[in-house]
């Protein structure tokens, strides 16, 4: 999959998916290009999304930087809206996020990778991180450059782990649960946290955020894989 050249992927599946597979999802308002289009999910896309060249990474460096930063903002707000913590890049390419069916313009795999690479960088504010198979068990940042084939899944940090740590600490504080042992399942999946932003967070990421709390001396983690608990103090 990933070894296909991005441009051919884009142009061939462009036709098939748009006209045959998903004619029903097409917006009825194709004739009036809206300044900010909305998604079935209720997400309202920024004006850039209706600007066809936005889907071609610009050759001019300064333009490209500004474009990458706009894409980064879009990705973060989209994931925040849908409450997504991880993205599978290949799947995401078919979603409205990267594929504007109204304009029949889409971001190619290669360009999407460039966007994510930018978000991972210092300049992009570390707003994303590739999840590489080789280091899935550690929470270390990518120490060696990964090949493009490995770059398929990623975290979108619409909040950085440090920010999440604060959010969780505040929640524990606000609900008076300091000193209580909470399981990771309780934190992420139980009804109690249903309204919280961190609800539904994958365990891997949650452990990492809690790790920040531990480092700050605000919490302690118990137990083994699968049934871990955390106590805040």
């Amino acid at each position: 999959m990933a070894s296909l050249t991005p441009s051919s992927t884009a142009s061939t599946s462009n036709l098939s998916t748009a006209s045959i597979l998903q004619p029903s999802t097409k917006e009825p308002s194709t004739t009036t290009p809206p300044s900010s289009s909305t998604d079935p999910t209720g997400f309202s896309f920024p004006p850039h999304y209706s600007f066809p060249p936005f889907f071609t990474l610009q050759p001019t460096l300064s333009t490209r930087q500004s474009q990458l930063s706009s894409w980064s903002t879009l990705l973060q707000s989209y994931c925040r809206h849908l409450h997504i913590f991880t993205l599978s890049l290949l799947d995401a390419l078919e979603t409205p996020l990267f594929y504007n069916r109204t304009l029949s313009r889409r971001l190619s795999l290669r360009d999407a990778r460039a966007v994510v690479d930018y978000m991972c960088s210092e300049e992009g504010g570390h707003r994303a991180e590739w999840i590489l198979a080789s280091q899935s068990n550690s929470s270390k940042k990518g120490s060696k450059p990964a090949s493009d084939d490995e770059k398929t899944k990623l975290y979108i940090f619409w909040r950085r782990p440090e920010e999440w740590a604060t959010v969780i600490e505040d929640w524990v504080d606000g609900t008076g649960q300091r000193g209580t042992v909470l399981t990771l399942y309780e934190l992420a999946e139980s009804d109690v946290t249903k309204k919280e932003e961190f609800h539904g967070m994958e365990e891997e990421l949650l452990r990492r955020c809690l790790g920040v709390c531990v480092k700050r001396g605000k919490a302690q983690i118990f137990g083994a894989e699968g049934e871990m608990g955390v106590k805040f103090f």
């Binding site: 142009s11 066809p52 610009q58 050759p59 300064s62 474009q67």
Partner: peptide, 16 residues
Amino acid sequence: MADSLVWVDRQAEQSE
């Protein structure tokens, strides 16, 4: 383009 005054769209039949 070099002055960022236009953006190119390469997904059209001819670059727009």
